[in-house]
Design a binder for these strands. Structure first.
Length: 484
RNA sequence: GGCGGGUUGGCGGAGAGGUUACGCAGCGGAUUGCAAAUCCGUGAAGACCGGUUCGAUUCCGGUACCCGCCUCCA
């Protein structure tokens, strides 16, 4: 039995799908204006685990997972406009498409690196403009929205349950006085469904003139088109709970009163970096790609994410990444390449039970340690695979091989390692040790393993910049000559 | 000001009203040419004040501190 903490009821509840033959979940996806930062990756990994769990329980063909791309956004517009003014050919809409294609490609590459499965459907907001307009027309017809000065606004007072998800009342929020007051609003809490576009902004023809949709309507329109008026799970970061999700509920429930919209709401807590909120002003802002480029494998990032329950704030630290890498290294050495993995047929209950219990991934990882210690390697491998770990040789290579060096450098280092092994085998301890010392001086630690095998690692991986790499190559050539 | 979440051993981090979380580090041992790695073993906790209970770190109330959201940042 799956149990999930439903934000809507603030309780952990047994999960009962509306239709076990088609379990439906929707995750608010990225705004595709730039590389995804690390915080963007947390819901992707967290709800990837949920997706895997649902597929396991209900069958892979019986789960529909929708994650949208928001490709209408002022930051995208700014980039496209800058390109057009720089002389790029094409309409603004085409340039926006170009920019978002590029960003979506990055997003896929980065999330793939984290071992996240692609959703069943990844709709783009700009492909659903007509459906958004239709939904807005329905809201106007039902008295839930009104047009004014080229804008269309949602009439918050027309939806009695507004605020139920986030536990707020409209009156309290107005008392808080942090709402935008605009002349075209009947009520300060009303929010935009449609807004006018001038010539420098992308726009679509609508009954209210050329314009573009507000932020919230896209998710309502796309979830309705792809999942229906009622579906099972709606997920996203806790920062979206208000206003985004609250507004989605208001729009969808007013436009489709016959449906219940999402049955279960899941929200992941925020990510921090070394104990502080990640922000550009604090200088601790980085993207997934930044970490990958630093030689931190995606599997390490995934492992670190899984160590903290999704409902709690997660602190990303360099130390955690290092510890995670050590575990993964040991596990990959234990199991060998994927083709040698002996995987038990069933996911062990020690792993499945905590994941079923509101996605307790830390508990599931703890179970992996237990299975490892108990020598139950087939179940261990099965459990790891279920969590999206230890399942591809590409990722194995990222963990075991090192570490963002060129092939040429890697093969030179391997050459040194072979020489070192030879000296050790012949018990030329003095020669072997002086080679080891020389290597340490250029930043590489030689390590002996069992059975005359050996390995190497960087003394301090953070110090490997490009200039360092070229001097490294010269040093390696020198050592290869001296110790041949 | 409004709403929500958190406070666990040296550190990270879970579940469960009563029985070992788990990991890292530490300590003891094995192994090793030295070292690393690995393996075995091991001590250590539940912010504070009350309440419910035979029994609470786990439920309830309060205090302190921290954090998030209310600014189209997941």
């Amino acid at each position: 039995m799956i149990r999930l903490h439903n934000t809507k009821t603030r309780r952990k509840e047994a999960f009962v799908p509306l239709d076990p033959a088609n379990v439906r979940m929707y995750l608010c996806g990225p705004t595709v204006y730039d590389r995804a930062h690390l915080g963007n990756a947390r819901p992707v990994v967290v709800f990837d685990v949920l997706y895997r769990l649902l597929r396991h329980v209900y069958g892979a063909d019986h789960v529909t997972y929708v994650r949208n791309f928001t490709d209408v956004d002022d930051k995208i517009n700014a980039t496209a406009l800058a390109r057009q003014q720089a002389g790029a050919p094409g309409s603004l809409e085409e340039l926006i498409r170009e920019r978002t294609e590029e960003t979506i490609g990055w997003y896929h590459a980065d999330m793939d690196a984290l071992g996240a499965l692609r959703p069943s459907v990844e709709p783009r907001a700009t492909d659903y403009i007509a459906q958004m307009i239709a939904m807005i027309e329905g809201l106007i017809a039902g008295g839930h929205a009104y047009a004014k000065d080229g804008h269309v606004l949602f009439r918050v007072r027309s939806y009695k349950a507004y605020g139920a998800l986030s536990g707020r009342s409209v009156d309290d929020m107005i008392a808080g006085a942090r709402v935008e007051v605009a002349p075209f609003k009947e009520d300060p809490m009303d929010f935009v469904l449609w807004k006018p576009s001038d010539d420098e902004l992308p726009g679509w023809d609508s009954p209210w003139g050329r314009g573009r949709p507000g932020w919230h309507i896209e998710c309502s329109a796309m979830s309705y088109e792809l999942l229906g008026a009622s579906f099972d799970i709606h997920a996203g970061g806790i920062d979206l709970q208000f206003p985004h999700h609250e507004n989605e509920i208001a729009q969808s429930c007013c436009a489709h009163p016959e449906g219940g919209f999402a049955q279960v709401w899941l929200h992941n807590e925020m990510l921090q970096v070394e104990g502080k909120k990640m922000s550009k002003s604090l200088g601790n802002f980085f993207t997934v790609r930044d970490l990958l480029d630093q030689g931190i494998p995606g599997e390490v990032i995934r492992f670190v994410f899984l160590q903290t329950h999704y409902g709690k704030p997660m602190d990303w630290t360099a130390e955690k990444a290092q510890v995670a890498r050590n575990h993964l290294r040991r596990w990959w050495e234990l199991l060998g390449p994927v083709e040698y993995h002996s995987v038990s047929k069933n996911v062990p209950s020690e792993v499945l039970n905590p994941v079923s219990n509101d996605l307790d991934t830390p508990g599931a990882l703890a179970a992996l340690f237990q299975l490892e210690k108990a020598g139950r390697f087939e179940e261990f491998a099965s459990g790891a695979k279920f969590l999206g770990l230890l399942n591809s040789n590409e990722k194995r290579a990222e963990i075991l091989s090192s570490k963002s060096l060129s092939d040429a450098l890697n093969s030179k280092i391997e050459g040194i390692v072979r020489i070192w092994i030879e000296h050790r085998r012949n018990k030329n301890w003095e020669v072997a040790d002086s080679l080891k010392t020389a290597m340490r001086e250029i930043g590489i630690e030689l390590v002996a393993l069992k059975d005359n095998r050996s390995d190497w690692k960087h003394v301090d991986p953070d110090e490997l910049d490009d200039s360092r790499q070229s001097s490294l190559e010269a040093s390696l050539d020198e050592l290869l000559r001296r110790f041949r």
